[in-house]
Amino acid sequence: MNIKRGFTYLFLIIAALISIFPFIWMVVSATNASVDVTKGTLLPGSRLIENINNLFNSVDMWQALWNSAKISVTSTIFSLLVASAAGYGFEMYRSRGKDIVFNILLASMMIPFAAIMVPLFQMFAKISEVMPFLGIDTAGAVILPTFTTAFLIFFFRQSTKMFPKDMMEAGRIDGLSEIGLFFRIYMPTMRSTYAAAAIITFLSSWNNYLWPLIVLQSPENMTVPLLISNLGSGYAPDYGMIMSAIVITTLPTAFVFFIMQKRFVAGMTGAVK
């Protein structure tokens, strides 16, 4: 019995160490010179400030952070509004017709992005001709095709099943309009569902790589993942500097995760229960 205990702890300690190690190494490397990073040094150096200075002097990190923030915040707001309204609509105004529509929408979850990226690119190339502000190389083009996801609609519909329907009846008697019910009663009651959905949506938008890579072209529109990828594949890269860029972008998400861990996990697993 004790051997089993011992094995359990040993295994979990090793698993935890392997999981955390790249984070430690990333932070340590951000304090080292490029040569030391390739040599795999594990001791903290004194070049953190220099690396960060180099980063902000050689690329427009602020611009990339701003672009990413702009896209992620806008995406999250639209996503939540649209998906929650739909999840609410499908569940509260249930009918056979709507269930069919719901299942058709769910089928879109099976569509691999790689399968539609070429036609999407062509679509936005055409949009560029008539509406340049929404076409190739704009934040709008990054946001527009990605903010509506069947997953999030499904997530809100599942959560709405727990919502007490009596509250709607009460609201109707009080003379609230159907739209009013959604904004005045549903939204405030479902705060924690919105919080969970906001975290997953924000992170997936913040980390999105392939579609922005296709649709964004000029350096001033670049998002953080594009910038890091470019730094990493550049000619004679400065590894210490790249690691400082990675630390700067990873720490905020790790921090958000630590504060909102419970909601984050609830948001991930809630939809499939």
Partner: peptide, 10 residues
Amino acid sequence: VTSLVAYSVV
């Protein structure tokens, strides 16, 4: 919580 690009480069 890491972005796919960031962890890949690491």
